[in-house]
Design a protein around this nucleic acid. Structure first.
Lengths: 205, 205, 205, 205
DNA sequence: TATGAATGAGAGTTCATTCAT
DNA sequence: AATGAATGAACTCTCATTCAT
């Protein structure tokens, strides 16, 4: 009966509703792509009436943008947490690809939507994707490549350029999965290949 | 009474019209993406009435598929011709990325459409892209990697897997260009990086 | 919190709107025929925007089928009710044609649409018409002809074949009306003619 | 080389072409109905280019009207010739239904088109059908019913009204055939039924 | 807050018809 | 006389969005 209590409860319900809508939206966008996704269907398949989703997102586009932002954050957290457990740059590189491929296998629909946005024709979605993935880009450049150089195990490459290269490799491969989310190349293979190109040759006596 | 002449003329007109429509279609698809492309606009911007395009392509989808097929062929020819000029596998790798990045810079719109199709949400387009790019995949696997292994300059990697990796790297990077078609990494950088991972270490005595 | 009330109101609105659309549809189909009927015009002439009709019927064809089903039911009820008031088979026959011709005069547009569907080129419409008119067919075969035979006033004809014949006569004549719905032959004339063919000749001593 | 010869030859070719087009048109109209018939398809399935048909018929509608006229004539000739072989009115009635049902079985497509036109929604087609069938209407009224009355075997019914009734019966039944053109009731059955209603009762002594 | 009836701009597609060759 | 490329009006259907309840 207290306003505070009611507010809290209402807030909680709204948060839950919002999450249900986002969950349904991811499914819909993954299955049909943004243009063919049906916002009414999203709302109803989440268990609400058609109009309800407009109480949470002002437009289909805004819904998509919110989805991109939140998924990028999830993606980053998922990878960064696993990468930073390791101290060695080489190991971190391995963890990067492991966690990265693991993400697209675990979050199949989310991954699909992110890839569509990143490589799709919509400039705004691409732009938002770039922004959203800057932290991951920095993670690779600073906490893996930069670290490896300072640890003396990587050749002195340009961290920024190489980070871009690695991100492209990661996303390019991650975008081509089978129906179960499995990539064509294993994380180990890719990490090996990449480390081969990055590691200093063993100095001969 | 001059059927040969008439046929030739008719054929020529149809070929020209078809090409004009394809040109307009590429522009439209590149700018708006498949779903937001307007087939009427394609026909009129090619200089015809909106119905005309249906004399050449039975549907918007068929137009897109024709575009994919023809562009893939152009893409393959463009790259294969330049790669095969070289005899050394390492040089071929360099040419592959050079020609590849050159293609997306030269054929900006075509490249855009192909990337959208390859990474987009439409299963048929993705499927057709795979099929259309099989020859390029084989080019990389046999005429570059396989050659390098047999020439003794590349480590004995699995050609198929590695070809997939390289194609992913190529397409991943090629998909991220600025407005002029320039990639973030230069062909040389990428080729260097890749060759670093592929080349046999110099054997010390 | 008053779902009952809200539901009832909603339901009522939908029922009314649906009926308005059906009414407009009958007019349109009767005037132009199915193929030339304009579904947008139906919706707007019913007082709604063109898209509204698609909230009630998934397609033009589905609208037509709904119309056929409901009109066939109306038609059957109209005739059966009047026929069954009589106990004598001969009187029932008279009532059948009276009510039948009355129906097409009273429901001019509905009749027109039904006739078009029954004799038109669309196989599905014809098929649905057959199904929809089976009950009327049975009414004639069992409750008129069969009754007359068991009452001893009709010759022992095959009820099914003769019912088909009578339905064909009824529909054939009913399909040819002037603008006011009047048939070329009166119900009495037709009933007389038919009964002449059905009645047992008076047995001479 | 003489103009006359050339003209004759040309006329003959045109007549043949016209007939080929009419044949194809009947098939098309029977299969799809007038509105869904494709005039281009008619021309090409007759072995000509799209435009050719417009050298013979000024419009799709004119083609249909020509078809109706010619088919009605064929229909009339087919029936009248057989009816007039008989001298007795009762036998003529039997021949009428025999020939009538035979016609729709022999000329399946033509029959279909005529029925569609007669019962369809297009007022012009219906009007033309009425006009075209007046001679058959008169055949029934004068050469069958009128004859029977004057021969003393038919009751003194009104020839015009009864002719309308019989035409409706004939067309109603003829319009409902299976795929092979067979009607649900046999000509004998129908003729029997009709004659039962028309014949004078045998006068008792 | 949730609802869902109503809206209407917009798209793909068809095809009768024209006309230059 | 025959051709067939081009035309463009017209139509069905979709669905993001609004808003009164």
């Amino acid at each position: 009966m207290t306003p505070r209590h009611k507010d809290t409860k209402r807030t909680q319900i709204m948060t839950e509703t919002r999450q249900l809508l986002m969950d349904a939206a991811i499914q819909e966008f993954a299955q049909y792509g943004y243009e063919n996704a049906n916002i009414n269907r999203i709302s109803t398949s989440a268990g609400f009436a058609k109009g309800t989703i407009y109480n949470y997102f002002p437009s289909k586009r805004a819904l998509m943008l919110a989805l991109i932002e939140e998924t990028a954050q999830l993606h980053l957290d998922f990878i960064a947490e696993r990468v930073r457990r390791e101290q060695d740059a080489g190991r971190r590189m391995e963890r990067f690809f492991e966690a990265g491929f693991d993400f697209v296998a675990t979050y199949l629909t989310q991954g699909r939507v992110m890839i569509n946005s990143l490589y799709g024709p919509d400039p705004e979605f691409r732009q938002v994707m770039y922004q959203a993935y800057l932290p991951m880009f920095e993670l690779v450049g600073r906490d893996i490549i930069g670290l490896g150089i300072s640890q003396g195990t990587f050749r002195p490459v340009d961290p920024t350029t190489t980070a871009g290269l690695l991100m492209n490799i990661y996303l390019g491969i991650a975008s081509q999965t089978d129906d179960t989310g499995k990539t064509w190349q294993s994380a180990d293979q890719v990490a090996d290949f990449v480390l081969n190109g990055l590691r200093k040759p063993a100095t001969s006596v």
